[in-house]
């Protein structure tokens, strides 16, 4: 059974309502992204257990001038990322990360893959010797250009 990630909120259609003015400014290539599914692991009773999650929706804005990006969840939480061309033979594929999240998108097709690395490796803030209980996931989906450049 698919679980719902704690940060998942609204439907894909609701994304337009969270578009921030900064994301719509000139120079940003803006996508609305629909994740189909996520799989991964989460700590349950002290063990990492494989989990399956519903996909989430988010905005992704890329500024190619300085290869920076913002990934914005439906709850308005933002991740500020640095990007690079991931593979020279695929110049339309851009890989972005803020250290804890990684996002790779092929701009022409809109296909993306996305991981959240917050779980497991990061210590529990209350008991630093323990792993924290956040999910550690990988997901995939597609993005649609919303406007911009």
């Amino acid at each position: 059974m698919k679980r719902t990630l704690p940060w998942t909120a609204a439907a894909f259609a609701a994304m337009t309502s969270v578009t921030a003015p900064a994301l719509a400014a000139d120079g940003w290539l803006e996508f609305g992204c629909n994740e189909i599914e996520e799989t991964g692991y989460q700590m349950v009773d002290g063990k990492m257990v494989r989990q399956l999650y519903e996909g989430t929706q988010f905005l992704f804005a890329l500024r190619e001038a300085d290869m920076t990006a913002i990934l914005q969840l439906v709850n308005n939480q933002r991740f500020y990322m640095d990007c690079r061309i991931a593979f020279r033979l695929a110049p339309d594929a851009v890989a972005c990360t803020d250290g804890a999240h990684a996002f790779v998108i092929e701009k022409v097709s809109g296909r993306f893959t996305y991981t959240r690395h917050l779980g497991w490796a990061y210590p529990d803030v209350r008991v630093p010797t323990n792993a924290n209980g956040d999910p550690l996931t990988v997901g995939y989906g597609f993005c649609i250009v919303k406007g911009g450049a």
Binding site: F87, T97, V104, E106, V108, R111, Y122, P123, T129
Partner: peptide, 30 residues
Amino acid sequence: ISCTEGAHTFVMDLESGRFAFSRLFGYVFP
């Protein structure tokens, strides 16, 4: 720490040795 090489990301806690490693090369690249 978090280390990346484009489509690969490696996150590791140097104290405990716990790590997560993602490979995002598949599906997205043409």
